[in-house]
Design a protein around this nucleic acid. Structure first.
Length: 647
RNA sequence: GCCGGUGUAGCUCAGCGGUAGAGCACCCGAUUCGUAAUCGGGCGGCCGACGGUUCGAUCCCGUCCACCGGCUCCA
C-alpha cells in the first residue's frame, strides 16, 4: 500500500495524496468548515463513507447536507439508529431490512408482539439518545464465516448472507451497541441525525412475499433541517386535508355503503356530474379521434372468459359465476365481466374484415367488476366496481405506431393539457413467461420505443414488466402536491387476436392476424375522479364543478331577482343554484366557500336594479367585482368551453 | 387475503360495568343582514352485528362485518 493517488475534485483541480488517504482527510485539507459539513463522499460516481480510504486515482466530491445523495445516506443511517434503539428496548428483536425510502426510511423487525404507538414514542426517545451519544458508524469487511458468527442470532440476516455470492464483499456496520449486515454507506456518526420522526408501524411480509412470515415495520422520516422536517409533516397534513374520501363526504360527491358492499361506489348527484362530464369529455374525444362507440353487457357466459384465457388464470379477480338464465340448462353459468376486451373482440369478429377496414377502434365507458382483495380497497382509488374508459384498436403491425400516436395525443389533450398534469412515461418489456416469438416482441417493443422517441417524450424502461401477452406504455401523472399516480396505459396484445382467431384479409387475399391495442386514458373514472378531488382539493375547474354559480340574494327583497338570475344562468347552460336560506350573508358566503363553488353571484338592491351581480371568485376572498349579467355569462361560458383550470 | 388499530346521532368527536353527551347539520321561531359561522328552541342514537362473562355490558372477552395505516396486489 504505497505510492500516491491522484484525486480530482469537482472544480477540476487535482491533488496527489498518499494512497489510503480518506475523503475526510482531504476535506480537512481543504478546510475545517468542509470537514465538519462533509457527510459522505462520491468517489467516481459511487457514494461512499467519508472514512473509506482511497486506493486508486479517482474523482471525488464531498457530500454535505446540500446533496440529495447525502440525505439518502442520512436516512439509511437513520434506519440503523432506529434498529439500535429497538434492540436496546427489545433485546430479542430480530432484524430484517432497513432501507431509505422516499422521504424517509423504515426497518423491519421480528418481535413477539406488534409495536404500539407508545412503543414508537419510547423508541423515538431512545433514538434521540443514540444520536446524542454520537456513536461513529464503523465499517468492517468480514469473511462469510465471520459474518455468520456475528449474526448467529439473526436468522433473517443469515438467510441474506447465504444468498451473497462468493465474489461479493461482505460488510458490517457498527454504531455503538448495534451491528448490521449492510453495504453502506453511512454518515460518520449517529450524531448527524437531528430532525426525525417515527410515523407509524405496520405489518410487512419478509422479503415482500405474502407466503412468508410477517414482520413489524416501523416507518420514519429524517431531514437535515428542522424546516424541512416541518415542511414534510405539513405536506402530510396537506395530503390529509385533500383526502378524497373526506372531501367526497364534505362535498357530497359519493359514498360507499356497507349495505351495498365495499368497493362499490354510490355516486351522489354532485359526484355523478363530475363523472358524467369526464366520460363525456373522453367520449367526445374518442369520436373526434375516429373511434366507434359500442356497448356491451355486464354479464356473459363464463365460456367467453375461457376463450379469452382469463379463466382460469384470472379467476381470483372475478366474482364467482352465477346461475343460468331462466329456462337454460344448469350447466350454463354466467359471470359479471371484469374487462371488456373479449366482447370487443367478438364485435370485431362479427364480420369479415379487410385490411382496408383497419384500424378498427372500439371504445366504451363500461362498468366492470373485479373481486379485489378486501385489504386493498381504498375510497375511489381502489374499488371493485370500475367505470373504465376502455378502448380496443384492431390494426396491422404497420399501423401500430400511428395508433400509439393517436393514443398519446389523447393523453396529451385529456390529461396533460386539460388538468396541467406533468406526465411520466414507462415502457414495460417482455417478461420471462410470454406469448409470441422473439421477433414479434422485438418489433412491438421497438414500435413503442420509436413512438415515444418520435414524440420526443422521455421514458424509462421497466425491463420484464410487460404482460405475458404484450409490452405496454404506462403513464403516471404528478398531482398538485407532488404525488405520482398510475394513469393512462397503452398495451399491445398478441394473445387475444390468437385466442379469438381474429383475422383480416390482406392485399394478398390471404387471412392475417391483427394486433390489438388496449388503451385507457383516464383509466377508471373512479380512480381518476379520486385523483382529481385530491389534486384540486375539491376546488374543481368551472367546467367540472358540480355547482358552478351560487346566487346569493343579500336579503329577502332580492330573492325574486336572484331566482330570475339563476334561471338565466341555467338557460345559458350553467349549473346555478340560489341560496336564499334564512341565514346571514356571511353564513352563506362561508358555506359557498366551504363547498368550493367557483363563483358566487351576490345580488343586492344595487345589482337587482342594474341587471348586474357582485361576483365573488372562489378563494379570492373579499375582492369582488360588480359586472353585468351578460358579461358574466360570456366569461364563464368561455371558461367552460375551454375547460379552463381557473378560477 | 395478511399484521395492527378503530367502530357512540347525518358529520366530527367526548364518555364508560349501573341502559348516553357536545358542536355542526336538520326542523321551528325571531332576525333581513353588502362578502368566511345572528340568537333562541326542537328533533335525532337496539353505542357496527352476533355470542359469552356479569345481578347488570356501549364499556370486559370471543367471532363476524366495515373502515383506517401498512404488506401483497393493482385501473
Amino acid at each position: 500500500m504505497s505510492g500516491s493517488v491522484r484525486v480530482t475534485l469537482p472544480d477540476g483541480s487535482a491533488r496527489e495524496v498518499p494512497a489510503g488517504t480518506t475523503p475526510r482527510q482531504i476535506a480537512e485539507g481543504i478546510g475545517p468548515g468542509l470537514a465538519r459539513a462533509a457527510l459522505a463522499a462520491r468517489v467516481d460516481g459511487a457514494v461512499r463513507d467519508l472514512d473509506r480510504p482511497l486506493e486508486n486515482d479517482a474523482s471525488l466530491a464531498l457530500l454535505t447536507d446540500r446533496d440529495p445523495e447525502a440525505l439518502e445516506v442520512l436516512r439509511h443511517s437513520s434506519a440503523h439508529i432506529l434498529a439500535t434503539a429497538v434492540r436496546e428496548l427489545f433485546p430479542g428483536a430480530g432484524i430484517g431490512f432497513g432501507p431509505p425510502i422516499e422521504d424517509g426510511f423504515y426497518y423491519d423487525f421480528q418481535v413477539d408482539r406488534p409495536f404500539t404507538p407508545e412503543d414508537l414514542e419510547r423508541i423515538e426517545g431512545k433514538m434521540a439518545e443514540v444520536a446524542r451519544r454520537d456513536f461513529p458508524f464503523v465499517r468492517d469487511v468480514v469473511d462469510r464465516a465471520e459474518a455468520n458468527r456475528r449474526f448467529a442470532d439473526d436468522p433473517l440476516k443469515l438467510e441474506r448472507i447465504a444468498e451473497l455470492g462468493d465474489e461479493e464483499t461482505i460488510t458490517v456496520y457498527t454504531d455503538g451497541p448495534f451491528q448490521d449486515l449492510c453495504r453502506g454507506p453511512h454518515v460518520p456518526s449517529t450524531g448527524r441525525l437531528k430532525h426525525f420522526k417515527l410515523l407509524h408501524a405496520a405489518g410487512a411480509y419478509w422479503r415482500g412475499d405474502e407466503r412468508r412470515q410477517m414482520l413489524q415495520r416501523i416507518y420514519g422520516t429524517a431531514w437535515f433541517k428542522k424546516e424541512d422536517l416541518e415542511a414534510y409533516l405539513h405536506r402530510l397534513e396537506e395530503a390529509r386535508r385533500r383526502d378524497h374520501r373526506v372531501l367526497g363526504r364534505q362535498l357530497d360527491l359519493f359514498s360507499i355503503s356497507d349495505i351495498v358492499g365495499p368497493g362499490l361506489v354510490l355516486w351522489h348527484p354532485k359526484g355523478a356530474t363530475i363523472k358524467w362530464l369526464l366520460s363525456r369529455a373522453v367520449e367526445d374525444d374518442n369520436v373526434a379521434s375516429g373511434y366507434d362507440l359500442v356497448y356491451t353487457p355486464n354479464v356473459t357466459r363464463e365460456e367467453l372468459f375461457y376463450i379469452s384465457g382469463h379463466l382460469p388464470l384470472y379467476a381470483a379477480n372475478q366474482y364467482p359465476p352465477m346461475g343460468a338464465g331462466a329456462g337454460e340448462s344448469e350447466d350454463v353459468r354466467y359471470m359479471v365481466k371484469p374487462m371488456n376486451c373479449p366482447m370487443h373482440a367478438l364485435i370485431y369478429r362479427g364480420q369479415q374484415r379487410s385490411y382496408r377496414d383497419l384500424p378498427i377502434r372500439l371504445s366504451e365507458v363500461a362498468n366492470v367488476y373485479r373481486n379485489e382483495k378486501s385489504g386493498t380497497l381504498h375510497g375511489l382509488l381502489r374499488v371493485r366496481g370500475l367505470s373504465m374508459d376502455d378502448a380496443h384498436i384492431f390494426c396491422t403491425m404497420d399501423q401500430v405506431e400511428d395508433e400509439i400516436f393517436l393514443c398519446l395525443d389523447q393523453v396529451d389533450r385529456l390529461v396533460r393539457k386539460t388538468f396541467g398534469f406533468e406526465l411520466d412515461f414507462e415502457i414495460s418489456t417482455r417478461p420471462e413467461e410470454r406469448l409470441g416469438g422473439d421477433e414479434v416482441w422485438d418489433r412491438a417493443e421497438a414500435v413503442l420505443r420509436r413512438a415515444l422517441e418520435r414524440k420526443q417524450i422521455p421514458f424509462r424502461i421497466d425491463a420484464g414488466g410487460g404482460a405475458f401477452y404484450g409490452p405496454k406504455i404506462d403513464i403516471k401523472f404528478r398531482d398538485a402536491i407532488g404525488r405520482m399516480w398510475q394513469g393512462p396505459t397503452i398495451q399491445l396484445d398478441f394473445n387475444l387476436p390468437e385466442r379469438f382467431e381474429l383475422e383480416y384479409t390482406g392485399p394478398d387475399n390471404k387471412p392475417h392476424r391483427p394486433v390489438m391495442i388496449h388503451r385507457a386514458i383516464y383509466g377508471t373514472l373512479e380512480r381518476f375522479t379520486g385523483n382529481l378531488i385530491e389534486h384540486f382539493a375539491g376546488a374543481f375547474p368551472v367546467w367540472l364543478a358540480p355547482e358552478q354559480v351560487r346566487v346569493i340574494p343579500i336579503s329577502d327583497a332580492q330573492a325574486g331577482a336572484a331566482r330570475g338570475l339563476a334561471a338565466r344562468l341555467k338557460a345559458a347552460g350553467l349549473r346555478a343554484h340560489v341560496d336564499d336560506r334564512n341565514e346571514t350573508l356571511n353564513y352563506r358566503i362561508r358555506d359557498g366557500e366551504i363547498h368550493k363553488v367557483p363563483y358566487m353571484a351576490v345580488v343586492g338592491q344595487r345589482e337587482a336594479e342594474s341587471d348586474s351581480l357582485a361576483l365573488r371568485v372562489r378563494g379570492a376572498g373579499k375582492k369582488q367585482e360588480v359586472m353585468e349579467v351578460e358579461a358574466f355569462i360570456a366569461r364563464v361560458g368561455a371558461e367552460v368551453r375551454e375547460k379552463a383550470i381557473a378560477p
